[in-house]
């Protein structure tokens, strides 16, 4: 029985690595459709990765080992995060090694390495991007922690897999705090993945970019790994959201092969819907000035805290 669990584990990680560029491509396609542009093909991300992997690396003269190591660290942390998140099955042997708080730590590690690598060369843009990224990061982290605390309170566990298992056994649990947590989570997702209200992933305009400014000095396979890691990051975030708020269909402990296949299909449907929703949010909102970003994140934090309060007021009483 444990053997099959390892099969699921590796299968899920490989699935995440393979599907992540497709998910980014899908979001880009939906965005293009909504903005009346000709959409790039779904395989565009893969083609770009292939092109980048075939090129030779151009390194700045004063680049240290940190600059060269950062893409691998980024990619590694994102793959590890994908191993912990129950996107298809909850019977994950690796998941017992880290809970949701450790997961935030993983994302923070990736962020720190990316910021350090961006400052390593010493260009103005890299430093600017790194500073902005750290600002957004330190505002987003408490908000996402609060979102997780909401879920911890509701399900009585800090492990993502345990939460999904609990949800499957009490399908009728529905708490108003979930709504607050979900809204806060979407706001954090947009900010953390350099999406539109905070950062525009498609721009190279000097004064507004955050993520692009940090990866400006990278080329070839390094850039490919970073791009792949960022599409894995948004894929991971989408999977966390699915596991926390719409976990129906995820195969719980001791599921059969058929159930896992169904879980896979539902995951793909849910991801397609999430991608379309993200594209919609991005299309109807304007980019905020960078000084408005703290306001946006404070709002996310506040909504998550409100969720906690509402849970303590309403949830505790209804169960008593």
């Amino acid at each position: 029985m444990r053997g099959i669990a390892f099969v699921w584990q590796f299968g899920e990680v490989l699935l995440a690595i393979a599907l992540a560029p497709l998910f980014s491509g899908w979001i880009a396609k939906c965005r293009a459709w909504m903005q009346n542009r000709t959409a790039p093909p779904l395989t565009q991300q893969y083609r770009m990765l292939r092109k980048l992997f075939l090129k030779d690396v151009a390194l700045a003269e004063n680049a240290s080992w940190l600059f060269r190591a950062a893409p691998y660290v980024l990619f590694g942390t994102m793959v590890l995060a994908a191993a912990i998140i129950p996107s298809v099955v909850t019977d994950l042997p690796f998941a017992s090694a880290a809970d949701a708080i450790a997961l935030i730590g993983l994302f923070a590690t990736a962020r720190v390495f990316q910021a350090l690598a961006a400052m390593d060369i010493g260009t103005a843009f890299g430093t600017l991007g790194a500073r902005r990224e750290m600002m957004v990061g330190f505002l987003a982290e408490p908000a996402i922690l609060m979102v997780f605390f909401n879920a911890f309170l509701l399900f009585g566990t800090t492990a993502l897999t345990g939460m999904v298992d609990n949800y499957a056994t009490h399908p009728s649990v529905f708490d108003p705090s979930v709504v607050f947590a979900a809204i806060a989570f979407v706001m954090v997702l947009l900010a953390e993945n350099a999406r539109i209200p905070i950062d525009n992933p498609a721009t190279h305009l000097e004064l507004t970019m955050i993520h692009e400014a940090m990866v400006l000095e990278y080329s070839a396979r390094h850039l490919a790994l970073i791009e792949w890691a960022s599409s894995l990051k948004i894929f991971n975030y989408a999977c966390i959201g699915i596991a926390l708020f719409i976990p129906w269909g995820i195969a719980i402990h001791g599921a059969t092969v058929g159930a896992v296949l169904i879980a896979l299909l539902t995951l793909i449907v849910k991801l397609a819907l999430c991608g379309a929703a993200l594209a919609l949010i991005e299309s109807i909102s304007a980019k905020l000035r960078i000084f408005r970003a703290p306001e946006f994140m404070a709002m996310a934090f506040l909504i998550a805290v409100l969720g906690l309060l509402v849970h303590l007021l309403l949830g505790a009483n209804t169960s008593a």
Binding site: P176, F180, L314
Partner: peptide, 12 residues
């Protein structure tokens, strides 16, 4: 639960 949800919506 629905009533609680609506009240929470008002707060939001």
């Amino acid at each position: 639960q629905l009533l609680n949800l609506l009240a929470a919506g008002m707060l939001l």
